[in-house]
Amino acid sequence: MSSNNNSNEELIQPQILKLDDDFSLVKRFIDGDESTFRLLVQRHQEKIRNIIYLVLSDSEVVDDIAQEVMITIYKNLKNFRFESQFTTWFYRITVNKCKDYLRKKNVRKIFVPIKEASEKFEYTSSTEVNDISEIVMDAISKLPVKLRVPLLLKDIEGFSYQEIAQTINCEMGTVKSRIYRAREGLKKILKPMESELS
């Protein structure tokens, strides 16, 4: 009996729901079961935190921004229209929050007294970077955001070009070009440290 019911439910569910299990959780949330949000958080929080860290290269702000992302998701989940994958929507919000943060940070920089700013600069530049992965991550952080994000989503998170295009809201051709340019840029940045990397 119960198996019959399940098969009926599967039949009436839209095709897309089968592709992404997140959809069923979202649907239950929309129907009033807010406890499913906890499951969504548990499922995606590490990914979200890592993406934020990759984009910003600053572990101190990761949790705060991740919380902002989750709260935004929570507030807007009832408006989710099932037109794209849940994760794509989720990641787009995350990347946008990171961009907001960087924008605000750049604005704040303008108002930081010159002395304080130079002290900060000295602190980061004097940090000794010995580990290869640290050298590479440091080099990646020097790339512009628009090149850095597609590269990391591809090489670290394993997104397809299509997923990246949906996440950062651009064409696939653009993603292909940006990833190549990011790799070229990275090569130039790492050139002086070739001996350490080999």
């Binding site: 990761v62 949790d63 992965s133």
Partner: peptide
């Protein structure tokens, strides 16, 4: 690609 793919260390859990 090898360098970027292998360099990232995941964040510790919060």
């Amino acid at each position: 690609k090898k360098l970027t793919s292998s360099s990232f260390k995941t964040l510790p859990e919060s």
